[in-house]
């Protein structure tokens, strides 16, 4: 028991952590693979998540997928994008109803939903992105592993 008995667990954890560590701290903004959107600006992303920009360029209504307010990634996303707390609500002029988004409980659930909804946008940890969704460049920069995006990618936390 102890060290010898635990080595397979430690090895498995290390193997899991290697890719995570390589991507650590990058939030990837994802859209459906069928979307024509390749890049947006940080200001545009902010307007989308505040309910000010509600349509893609083809006129389709944007389906905004968010994470629950308790999640660490939402706290980071709100700080980087809105300079706000994760529970911050956003109102459109003249409306007492806060702008509402679809909340998902995990990166995997977010990715699966975005992969199924053609006009959806969401955000996940960059290490969670697979080929079912498409990463959108923010201010012309895409998240990259091994800190290659440090200092240039705006959604690094």
């Amino acid at each position: 028991m102890t060290v010898r008995a635990r080595w397979p667990v430690l090895l498995a954890a290390a193997l899991l952590l290697v890719p995570t560590a390589a991507w650590a701290g990058s939030i990837a903004v994802i859209v459906n693979k069928s979307s024509s959107v390749e890049a947006i600006s940080l200001a545009e992303l902010r307007r989308i998540y505040q309910g000010q920009k509600t349509r893609w360029s083809d006129g389709a209504t944007i389906m905004v997928v968010n994470r629950s307010a308790a999640s660490a990634i939402r706290a980071a996303f709100y700080r980087l994008v809105h300079n706000a707390d994760p529970e911050q609500e956003f109102y459109q002029k003249g409306s007492p109803i806060p702008f509402k988004t679809i909340t998902q409980e995990s990166d995997i659930a977010t990715r699966r939903l975005v992969s199924r909804m053609p006009n959806a946008i969401g955000y996940v940890g960059a290490e969670q992105v697979d080929d079912t969704v498409k990463i959108v460049a923010i201010d012309g920069v895409r998240p990259a592993p091994d800190l290659q995006d440090a200092g240039v990618y705006p959604l690094r936390w």
Partner: peptide, 24 residues
């Protein structure tokens, strides 16, 4: 009429990336 124009995004590269006009 209501609407808004994200001038900062459209005139990107000259600073004030967040410049936004909205009108009613």
């Amino acid at each position: 009429f209501t609407g808004h124009a994200p001038l900062g995004e459209q005139l990107g590269g000259i600073g004030l990336k967040d410049f936004l006009l909205d009108y009613q």
